[in-house]
Amino acid sequence: MNQTTLAEKTGAEADIAPAPYSALLKERVKAYWRSLRVSDPALLETLSEDCLNRAQRRLGRRSEEELLRHALEETQRRFDHALARALRLPPSKNAHSIAAVRAAFLLSADQPSADSLFQSAAAAPDLSGLLRKALPCATPPEAHLSMPPAPLRFWLFKSPPG
């Protein structure tokens, strides 16, 4: 199915039964959830629908692309909240810290499922410990040393200033 048929199809369906969004759109949101390691089919269904409905409510009738964009943003927000909850971080903490947790989770070698973030609170402490240990630490605390330019002076050639 190509893009034109997708638009035709969604338009035709809207005449028969006003579906809030197309199945393809939902598939896309599901794919995004899957890329965030949510694997349980029922959970995928619920979370995707929730995100799309919420985006729909906020936007009203807009283009599918915009609806998808908002649904994806909602997905990111929900996922970040779930991660913050697991690590007992305030959800409003800056984007970099949450991104670090997300990176640690998604790049983890154990490939933990994100299902537990949304299902049971019992799994969270384990995950919390795992993530805290695996947070990216790009640079250590700085310990400055001064490095003044060497006072080079030349015969015949111009010398550097200073």
Binding site: N2, Q3, T5, L6, E27, R28, A31, E64, L72, Q76
Partner: peptide, 20 residues
Amino acid sequence: LARLHTLAWSQKSWMTVLSS
């Protein structure tokens, strides 16, 4: 960067790929 990430998942070409 955040905008581009979302765009990468929501742009039409993705939907085209998905639908084909």
